[in-house]
Simulated assay, not measured.
Amino acid sequence: MTTSTGPDARRIAETVASCPGVAALLAGPFGTVATYLPGGSVTGVRLRDEVVEIHVAVRYGRPIPEIVAEVREAVGPLIGDRRVDVMVDDVTETEEARKVGSS
């Protein structure tokens, strides 16, 4: 859902994390991808004027383009007319990535 100040980063992160091929949201290669909010931050989601940037680790076994398309489709209703850039920063076979991506 889009609010008067823009998309809700926490809701976007929850939606991305619920996608079947996503193992975790990640902070990107330099640890800087996040949306900073009062009381904390949302790792793996960066809101910009025209773009929502999402960084994820995906589970091994499914085609990455399929997973990326699912993420884009899932967050589409939450971001208004912004473009969605999904970056796959890691591929994992385990649930360990969930622990790494949590904030």
Rank of each mutant, 00 (worst) to 15 (best):
S18H: 13
V56P: 03
R48Y: 00
L26P: 04
A69V: 01
D49G: 15
A17I: 02
C19T: 15
I54A: 07
S41P: 00
G31Y: 14
V22H: 05
E70N: 10
A23T: 05
I54H: 09
V22C: 11
L37Q: 04
R11L: 15
I64F: 00
I67T: 15
Y36P: 00
R46G: 03
G40D: 01
G28P: 02
V71Q: 03
V45S: 08
G61K: 14
E66Y: 12
E66A: 15
G39E: 05
L26S: 03
V16G: 02
V22I: 14
P20V: 08
I67L: 10
G40N: 07
R72M: 05
E73Q: 13
V58F: 02
V51D: 15
L25E: 05
V52A: 05
D49S: 15
V33A: 13
R62T: 12
R48M: 10
A34N: 08
P38W: 12
A17E: 12
E14W: 10
I54K: 10
G21A: 07
I12Y: 03
V33F: 08
R72I: 06
V52N: 07
H55W: 15
L47Y: 06
V45C: 07
P38C: 06
G21N: 05
V71R: 08
F30C: 01
E53D: 14
V71P: 02
G40S: 06
A23H: 09
V52T: 11
L26C: 04
Y60D: 01
I67K: 06
V22D: 01
L47P: 04
A57Y: 08
L26H: 07
V16D: 00
P38E: 12
R11S: 06
G28Q: 04
G28S: 02
